[in-house]
């Protein structure tokens, strides 16, 4: 009884702001010639999808987040394997180093990142954002993958080697299928931290390549169509909700401190 009530209160707390956003997203908040204020319907979503800037922003976000997830997994996998299977000179320093980068506040690095990336022509491009988000996503990916690889018995590797698989073929044909849930969880955490991030995403998109977060910000004006803003916000939640759904069985593996 008490537990049920506590869970109900928690659900209310978590869902309340989202419920309001969903309600508003289906409500006309700026009266037009044909629509009275307060009409219920899909017009906000139609408006969002009819705006080229907003469509482009969704695409931009999708591109840099996918790039970031792919890059993080590809680079983290060998490193995680090395940490899980061997000891090497400086391994604890390496773990400490990635912890330090994970906790470096983005705002501290925003200025030099901008100057450095503008030299390389990486401003206004999804590649720049995908790269810089590795700063906090790569450590998380390494921690998660390391714990999943550690859970696979060493004999598994040896059998694969005896079968003549080594190097890339071992990673692709044996290890990756074996730790697929781990890759899912790592991709999930990389995805959410990259999708919601605003400090780097703002500073690296000066004139173009605006991500979804900045596009929503730009919708505020003298006369804000709050219904449309909420429709855009709800759309921006969909990929995250889908990710939560896909990894729901493995979400509870989480990650722990390794230093």
């Amino acid at each position: 009884m008490m537990r049920g009530l506590a869970l109900l209160a928690l659900a209310g707390f978590i869902l309340l702001p989202l419920v309001q956003a969903v309600i508003l997203s289906f409500t006309a908040t700026l009266p037009t010639d044909t629509l009275a204020k307060g009409t219920i319907g899909l017009m906000n979503y139609r408006n969002v999808l009819a705006t080229p800037d907003l469509r482009a922003a969704m695409l931009n976000s999708a591109i840099y987040v996918s790039l970031n997830v792919a890059l993080c997994i590809a680079v983290a996998l060998p490193a995680a394997y090395a940490l899980a299977r061997t000891r090497f000179t400086g391994d604890r320093h390496f773990l400490m180093l990635i912890l330090v980068f994970r906790v470096t506040p983005p705002v501290v690095l925003s200025l030099p990142i901008f100057i450095l990336f503008s030299r390389f022509g990486l401003v206004n491009s999804p590649v720049g954002i995908a790269l810089v988000h590795c700063l906090f996503n790569l450590p998380v990916a390494i921690w998660i993958l390391e714990s999943f690889i550690r859970a696979v018995p060493r004999e598994f590797d040896e059998t694969a080697y005896l079968d003549g698989h080594s190097g890339p073929s071992f990673f692709l044909r044996h290890l990756i299928p074996q730790i697929a849930p781990g890759i899912g969880v790592a991709a999930f955490f990389c995805f959410i931290f990259s999708w919601v991030e605003v400090v780097f995403a703002r500073i690296l998109t000066v004139t173009g390549g605006k991500p979804i977060t900045m596009a929503i910000q730009a919708m505020f004006s003298f006369q804000t169509d709050i219904g449309k803003v909420m429709a855009m916000t709800c759309l921006s939640l969909l990929p995250g909700v889908a990710m939560i759904w896909f990894v729901r069985r493995h979400l509870a593996r989480g990650f722990t401190l390794r230093a």
Partner: peptide, 27 residues
């Protein structure tokens, strides 16, 4: 069945950061 509780509590994590104050100020 705990997974049905984990999914909703993870929901705020996927909300873009600049939208969070806006959602609450609206509320």
């Amino acid at each position: 069945h705990a997974v049905w509780g984990l999914m909703p509590v993870a929901l705020p994590l996927v909300v873009p950061w600049n939208m969070i104050p806006m959602l609450w100020l609206g509320l």
